[in-house]
Design a protein around this nucleic acid. Sequence first.
DNA 1: AAGTCGGGGGT
DNA 2: ACCCCAGACTT
Length: 368
Amino acid sequence: MNDRRKSLFVPEKIDALRPFSAPLLAWYGANARRLPWRVLPTPYRVWVSEIMLQQTRVEAVVPYYERFLAALPDLPALARAPEDRLLKLWEGLGYYSRVRNMQKAAQAVVLAGGTNLPGSYEALRALPGIGPYTAGAVASIAFGIPVPAVDGNVLRVLARLLACREDIALPQVKRAFEQAAAALLLRECPGDFNQAMMELGATVCLPNAAPRCADCPVRAFCAAARAGNAPDYPYKSPKKPRVVEERTVFVVVAEHTVLLRRRAGKGLLAGMWELPNLAGWLSAEETGAVLAGWGMPEAETRALGDGKHIFSHIEWRMKGLLALPHACPPVEDGVWANAADLAERYALPSAFRPYARLLLELLARDGM
DNA sequence: AAGTCGGGGGT
DNA sequence: ACCCCAGACTT
């Protein structure tokens, strides 16, 4: 075995870092944010928080978390919830496969005769939606198992502490950091140690040019801080540019309802509801043909404003089109939804927000 | 190892 | 504009 894991970090360098855990833990004890999932860290509550927190900021998660736990207070309740309800609870959070996988995992537990998550790293890791980070987080925080939990925060903190210029986007390098984190982990309080590392990254060892080294409890141990170039870490390879797509979005309103369409079960925004939309900026002739195809050739139309929405790897540049047919004919994969349906039943992705306000006004207006 | 999958807030 | 976030899964 001659892989790079052994050459990436010199064991003596890791050993020299080990005493940093005492000031780190002391700092965490005094500065930990009071977060809902820290009040009563049961396996289910920690799990839900960790799934929501994947690629999502704490501030964005908190309101979703409270609402989700109130609606589905335990694992069996999650296992038996209708999918539409899950998506509605997740509406606007993004990465919707997270909640589907979470339910799959809950159903697997129930099917095996259980009512709660398994208490080992390996069994957690085997469940849908639980990868190396989440398995480590739930195992350490909820079960006290001494395993690391290496997220983006921890990668950044360690890259700076060790002044490591490797590309943290590479799986190989990430594994090396997990080894380092495992070596540094405090086995007496793995959950607090892991959370302290993340808390430091989230509130002090900030990304880009914003680290607050003067406020850092472990700056004496930090190689990057000593060199005065903490902002240079971590190194990441450039990501490829987003694809720009032009789309035409139809706002079709009749009889106080709007036409929604269900998206395909796979791919972007899988299974979500949407304002019907097509690729390209359609001409008047083309929009007329589309509306005729939906059984509303008589619909009066009006151009709406432009809208933009940025996904991770795609950018939608939207042109809106208002259509006012005289009735509500059935449309394939479509439903006619009123304001109450929109509020309670159909999960509409944030991409359509540019047209949401207008839509609600139209649904409330007389003669629509 | 690279691509897919959301959305929002900070700089 | 660009960054990146308590990442996981598929190809």
